[in-house]
Structures are given as structure tokens and as C-alpha cells.
Design a protein around this nucleic acid. Structure first.
Lengths: 105, 105
DNA sequence: AAATAATATTGCAATATTACGATATAAAAA
DNA sequence: TTTTTATATCGTAATATTGCAATATTATTT
């Protein structure tokens, strides 16, 4: 006991939770926001904008990538990151459905 | 080391992360979805829809409440829960800004 | 007043996350 | 080829999360 009982929930609930979970850290929010504000994909600069060490940033990037929120392309000895709009749209749609005012409470 | 360095990030980043984090578990997604689908606020039934014990569900409800995602109203010896649309709207707006297709990658 | 019902809290074990130093890897530059 | 640059991985310590049994709390019902 301690691990979450993933297999007791629907695929959809698990997917939404894993996307939300990946965004559930201020460093990862900062990364995603930085990529969103950039005109193009970003190589190199991500470590510089965060108050965290390079290995820690690398770990956060991996989590965002494994949730599908960002994509990374190898570009020489650097890696270019950008947002995966498909996955963000899934989240957007989902939150949109929840955020509908109802006449109660 | 181990705890996240909350104080090194902006209030906005921390708030968005804490909302996302609260949604980052399939049980909490299931709760929120159940409340969204219900016509009115829900007392009592929440424990029954989840494959988890009553104390565990209570803990998840508390996390959703402390992130501001749900509200609970005392109603006799029960508690009626419903979504806090204000907070969901904050998230909706935020994700909406991220999820804008750009011509890159 | 005692029993019941709904929810919260406590205590604790199992596991996951966060962070970083040290080190590895792989491509570019010197 | 050596050095530099950009990123990843390993190992590990500190802390947080998840889950539940046991118990407490609070209001309702009998």
C-alpha cells in the first residue's frame, strides 16, 4: 500500500490523471509556460530559466515527455523541446467539460 | 532535498501546479467527474463509486478541497460536495492559453 | 440514552517524488 | 584528438503520497 491503484480505474481516468500529475509541479508548469510563450521550439535554454540543477531539470523534462505533454527532437548535440498540442488539447477539452456552471450550491 | 522548492517559483506557477496536482490521481479525477455529471451536489454516495476505503476517499476529498477544486457543505450528519467552478475556470483558462497551435515542430 | 449513519483523524507501512552530486554519453568545436 | 557543450543516468538522501485498520466525531434516529 502506498502506490496508487491504477488498475482499478478506467483508462480515461488514468490518462487524465497522468497528464494532470505531470503538470502538478511548479517547475514543470514553468517549463510548459516557457515553451508556450516561445515562438519556436527551444533548445538549451530550459535549464537556465529554472532555479534547479541540470539533472533535476532533465528529470522534470522526462516526466513531461512521458506524459506526452512535450516532444523533444535531437538537434546536433542539443535537444529541441516543444509542446505537444494534441495532448494539451485533450486536457483542454476535458477541463472544459468539467468547467460548466450549474445552478447548484 | 525531496520536497519541492515551492518558494523558488511564482505564486501563479505554484497555484496552477497545486490545482493540477490535485487532479493528478485517478480517484480524484473520478470524484470530480462524478460531481460534474451529477445534477446537484452529492452527499454520501462518493465512497460507493470508488474502489477505495472510506478513509482513503476522505483523504482524497480533503486534497481536492484544499486545492479549492471542490466545496463541501455540512448537511445534517452528512456533507454535500460540489465542484468549485471558479477554480476550474482558472485552470480552464490557463490550459486554454497553452493549447494554441503554433507553426513549429 | 443508546444505536446508527456519515465523515474525519490518527498511526503506520509501502511506495513515489524531488533534488542533486558524480558520472556517462554524444555531438560540435578547437 | 582533445576539449567543450548539452543532456542523460545513477545513486542516494529527504520528503511526500497512497492506502487502510482502528478509532474519533457529530448528527440523526430509535
Amino acid at each position: 500500500m502506498g502506490a496508487s491503484k491504477t488498475d482499478h480505474f478506467s483508462d480515461n481516468h488514468n490518462q487524465m490523471a497522468s497528464i494532470a500529475k505531470a503538470l502538478g509541479h511548479p517547475a514543470r508548469i514553468a517549463i510548459v509556460e516557457f515553451l508556450a510563450k516561445s515562438e519556436a521550439c527551444i533548445c538549451t535554454d530550459i535549464v537556465d530559466i529554472l532555479p534547479l540543477s541540470q539533472p533535476t531539470v532533465s528529470q522534470h523534462l522526462r516526466e513531461l515527455k512521458s506524459a506526452g505533454i512535450i516532444k523533444g527532437t535531437v538537434e546536433g548535440n542539443a535537444i529541441c523541446y516543444c509542446l505537444n498540442q494534441e495532448v494539451l488539447s485533450i486536457l483542454k477539452e476535458y477541463i472544459g467539460k468539467l468547467a460548466i456552471i450549474k445552478t447548484c450550491c
